[in-house]
Design a protein around this nucleic acid. Structure first.
Lengths: 268, 268
DNA sequence: TCGAATTTGTGCGTATGTATC
DNA sequence: GGATACATACGCACAAATTCG
């Protein structure tokens, strides 16, 4: 049963020059003819080889760079990006109800050393965050969420940016009001909520991707416009959202892994 | 006395022109001053407004387009992209051991009509696929995997490309050898494997993102180079991989959702 | 239906800035 | 400092798609 190709009555026009050249170079990279870390011919050299103007070659370079295949270093040259078996950031289906920071657990399970920096303050939530947390319109200027910005590091390399939001109405005056201060600092949302009698029952993560913003690129030490995976994570106690977070992960160095068991049907 | 050069600490250089202009336009879009579906000034107009050359404006447009904020239509103009509340593709933690195609179930659960096209053939696996399936080097020219290429549609719009690989050694001669033929056509991997006595115990999905290839862009009806989320899915029977698939999903129209319960610690 | 005007896409050539070797 | 190499910017020409009288 081979592939079926149906030719309709119209001719595909040739792709533009820069795309055809990009295709050629991409093939050479994938085939290994251009090995990882090898230097590509200089742009001037490529202009001669293909007999095109510099604009075309630059478009080719932009294309391949946006695919993460090459990296240009000003003054040095353009190099095939080594694909050093991207680190995997496990996001376990299994989120234990006790046991400390999920991030540290995941890191430890994979032999990495995790650490983080943070910054907490109470603010008024944006409409989107209000929606995700199921909050009403604020009727005053008072803050309605605790916002905490995290930078997570694995082996001293930044791997995640996260901004977490918790309804201030839930945690105000509680010992866990500041996620990273007090006796329960550094623990996960599940554990901290348990302290104030809230049982987190499930979580949801919405995964997407986009180019990094300027600030994200700086914080993650990646090039401007490099891709990041984005995760909107929300923890629920039954139907009520109790925490939500925006997470950004650079896609060229890390990939994320989900997994779960397959089970016979049962009540839940 | 000769001229003295005094270094006053370190001055951040201004971002390049095209980036500053892109920042300005991005802000106008986010603030709503440029509403969704509104037409941007033409490139010629922008050249006058900012008093820059056409190359700069084109770079600005490329930048914003790559961020998914605008979309240019040749001959017509450039428009702010409406963000039509992206459809969510649920990827349930819960994969029932019985019940037919997971894709159809997910679609039905969200009130969409799912359908798909496919093409199966036996081939020799690439080294990467061999690695994911735990297969040995082939010692002949004989095929070692069944490859099936799928195009999944939701409400007649392509939403996923998937290429599935199953070890031929497992399924050769079995009634489920061809995933989409015979009495068990259209069922999920879990169910089909059960037919030949293999119990799928868990799954793993590695999520990443990259620009779409030319063929992917055509199949998904998206622009060349638009972003796709990629998933490497593998089903396991205990420790043995029994199926793996490469999945591509356009990021501008769909986002994927994972979720699971939080539970007290127990054996598994 | 047709053609002209408009608008974006591709390509060419040149000049200058800046980082690296 | 000099040579090399990529990044940014200017300006022009033409192609391709759309719009509109």
């Amino acid at each position: 049963m081979g592939a079926q190709t149906v030719k309709l009555g119209h001719v595909e026009p040739l792709p533009p020059l820069f795309r055809r050249i990009a295709d050629e170079l991409r093939a050479k990279i994938r085939s290994g003819e251009l090995a990882p870390n090898a230097q590509l011919p200089t742009q001037a050299e490529l202009m001669r080889q293909y007999d095109v103007s510099d604009g075309v070659i630059k478009a080719v370079m932009r294309t391949l760079a946006s695919e993460g295949l090459i990296q240009a270093r000003r003054g040095a040259g353009t190099f095939v990006k080594a694909r050093p078996t991207r680190q995997r950031l496990p996001r376990s289906w299994w989120r234990p109800a006790r046991g400390g920071s999920p991030f540290l657990q995941d890191m430890a399970a994979h032999g990495m050393h995790g650490s983080w920096a943070f910054d907490s303050e109470t603010v008024q939530a944006s409409p989107e965050i209000r929606d995700r947390l199921g909050l009403d319109e604020p009727d005053s200027e008072l803050p309605d969420v605790m916002r905490t910005a995290y930078t997570f590091m694995a082996d001293d390399e930044p791997v995640q940016l996260a901004t977490s939001y918790e309804p201030w109405a839930l945690t105000k005056g509680e010992p866990i009001a500041y996620p990273e201060a007090g006796p329960h600092a550094g623990q996960g949302v599940v554990e901290r909520m348990a302290v104030i009698g809230i049982t987190v029952t499930h979580w949801s993560e919405v995964v997407s991707a986009r180019p990094a913003s300027t600030v994200e690129a700086q914080a993650l030490k990646i090039g401007a416009g490099a891709l990041v995976l984005t995760i909107e994570r929300t923890y629920f106690a039954e139907t009520r959202p109790v925490e939500t977070a925006d997470i950004a992960i650079p896609v060229d160095r890390y990939e994320i892994v989900y997994g779960a068991p397959v089970r016979e049907a049962s009540g839940e």
